[in-house]
């Protein structure tokens, strides 16, 4: 594309990005640029914190602006991304980092050793995407309530629900991952993709939601309550 993009508010430091790439030639890719924003891709998930540490200590990227997750799409390979934005206060440059994972249950490494403020950002990534951060001392939900069954920023999570998320995953027949207490995305949510919903007419949608409600109410209503003692 020959079109030029305005580079409003972005002052990237190509030299610093290249220096980082030179320092970690087999853990990073050459920096990519779009509209003035430079992004350095870290290919070795285990050395991401090392790269960030080097950026902070040797290149002066001392201000943690942001750290957030991204989902490249259900069919994308690799699918999961954690992005970090750092700022250099002496040269006034900004640099973006991204690290991919294609694992089904991605495990990234916490950046809390480099920036203590990564704590909440990583908790938010976990909250929204369900990524684990190795070494994070307190990885639990931050914006959503503790019983929330899903990771809503994953692409398969529908934009609109019709009450099916009111109950925790256990009630929906979703499986609870016993290993670390995290809740896997239940099948009922996976199948209810947005496109499917949009194709339903309002009447059909209403009927379907009534059916879902009835189906949900049945087993719990029929099953006798177990005595507590």
């Amino acid at each position: 594309m020959s079109k030029t993009f305005p580079t409003t508010g972005s002052h990237s430091d190509l030299a610093a990005a290249q220096a980082l790439h030179a320092a970690f030639p087999d853990a990073t890719k050459a920096p990519a640029e779009f509209a003035g924003d430079l992004t350095l891709e870290v290919t070795d998930i285990g050395r991401e914190t090392e790269v960030l540490q080097h950026a902070r200590d040797a290149l002066g990227y001392s201000l943690l602006i942001d750290r957030f997750g991204d989902d490249m799409g259900e069919d994308a390979q690799p699918r999961w991304v954690v992005r970090t934005v750092l700022y250099d206060l002496t040269n006034h440059k900004r640099l973006h980092f991204r690290v991919f994972s294609s694992a089904l249950d991605p495990v990234f490494h916490t950046a809390m050793g480099v920036f203590r403020g990564a704590n909440w950002y990583e908790r938010e990534v976990y909250d929204m995407y369900g990524f684990a951060f190795e070494g994070h001392p307190d990885l639990r939900r931050i914006l959503l309530h503790e019983d929330f069954p899903d990771f809503p920023l994953r692409k398969e999570y529908p934009m609109e629900g019709r009450g099916e998320h009111a109950a925790p995953a256990r009630a929906l027949g979703g499986n609870v991952d016993g290993t670390d207490g995290r809740v896997a995305v239940p099948e009922s949510v996976r199948s209810g993709s947005d496109t499917e919903r949009e194709s339903l007419s309002p009447d059909e949608a209403w009927k379907r939601s009534a059916e879902m409600k009835a189906a949900k109410g049945k087993p719990s209503g029929d099953a006798p309550q177990e005595p507590t003692s």
Partner: peptide, 24 residues
């Protein structure tokens, strides 16, 4: 929209309000 990812940080009253947009 063009393919790409942009970040813009705005000096909001409370600090940097940043928007990151990725489009395919």
């Amino acid at each position: 929209l063009p393919h790409g990812e942009v970040y813009f940080g705005h000096e909001n009253p409370k600090g940097e309000l940043g928007f990151f947009l990725r489009s395919e």
